[in-house]
Design a protein around this nucleic acid. Structure first.
Lengths: 191, 191
DNA sequence: CTAGAATGTGAATCATCCTTCACGTTCCAC
DNA sequence: GTGGAACGTGAAGGATGATTCACATTCTAG
């Protein structure tokens, strides 16, 4: 059932993995352990499902963000992507952190890698589409660096005040930072 | 004893936290569980000690790296810092990941935050010292973004081939990327 | 209405460690 | 050489928590 999954998400979010017991999850969902095992044959099965839900959602948001800015300028598109990432990281952040913590044990690394590759590819496409504004030589590498750099920034920001990731001023600053790295000094002949 | 700590590091590194039992650690150190508890009164005590060792080392490497490039140019110093970070992330990377995973439970977040603040401050100082080469307005913010951006890049690189973090070509690319963001178009009057 | 299926229940089972402790063994001061 | 302090040992204790299963309860088709 779906309420079981949501209950699992809530317990995981509020108590962390170590204190998330199958009994607590079942009770929170208004069911009993037995029922839980009817739908999810193991505690890990719950986590797998949560993983699915989370990555699905992130994928969808990115796609939507790209679609919504189709045809716009480089800055607008980069900003939209950054905003989307920050927003996703900010929503249920504890849940995200706990899931990430369990990723190795659940062998979800491949899945995560694939996800970040897809994002990388999307960013790469955006850079290519605005090649005239991008001064760096290797756009493939640049997009990889930018994606993971921004993820690192998001992760660090999560540790501070949670509002920061939604602060337009902060988002603008990060966007500018990224664009600075991409545009490079665009003089007729280098240096 | 020190061999106990090293044994703990090895077990943690090769098996991960969930499979790291106190008995295994003791045996690997050539001792018995009882002896282990003589020196480390709990399993967590071992982890605390490992944390200490790891952060101590990182701090020392950074300090050394800064000292070694004292007086050199911006690029050389930035590169040295990046190289140091990558090297540290690459050494015993699994150990580092497992420790980071346990950080919340051990309440080591404050410690980690302090560490990254110190690094942030050091980078900020470097940028200030080379203010003439740095085009961004807010060097404080820029150093924060750079530090966490590079950390994110390092974390992502760790998932790929381990050699990448030690590859001079890769390090150069990241350095350039960072410098591009910092130098910005340095025209007499903006834009 | 009623048999049987589907679904729900939660106490009991089972496995896994961390931790303790009663009992060696080693080492040193005298 | 000897008493006892320091150190070492590993089987047993206890806790915790996932999972099972014998037994309700609810639903549905006929």
């Amino acid at each position: 059932m779906d309420s079981l999954l949501e209950a699992a998400a809530q317990v995981l979010e509020s108590e962390g993995f170590e204190k998330m017991t199958t009994t607590k999850v079942a009770l929170r969902a208004g069911a009993s352990v037995g029922s839980l095992y009817q739908y999810y044959p193991s505690k890990d099965a719950l986590l797998h499902a949560l993983f699915e839900r989370k990555t699905e959602r992130l994928r969808a948001r990115f796609a939507a963000s790209l679609a919504a800015t189709e045809g716009q300028g480089l800055e607008a598109r980069v900003r939209a992507l950054i905003e989307t990432l920050f927003l996703e990281k900010a929503t249920r952040s504890r849940l995200g952190v706990e899931l990430a913590r369990q990723a190795p044990r659940l062998e979800k690394e491949r899945l995560i890698e694939r996800l970040s590759e897809d994002i990388h590819r999307a960013v790469h496409a955006v850079l290519d589409a605005h090649a005239d504004e991008v001064g760096v030589a290797d756009r493939e590498l640049a997009s990889w660096l930018v994606v993971h750099g921004v993820v690192g920034i998001a992760d660090a920001a999560m540790l501070g005040p949670p509002a920061r990731l939604r602060d337009p001023v902060f988002i603008s600053a990060v966007t500018e930072h990224v664009l600075d790295a991409l545009r490079v000094a665009r003089l007729p002949s280098a240096r």
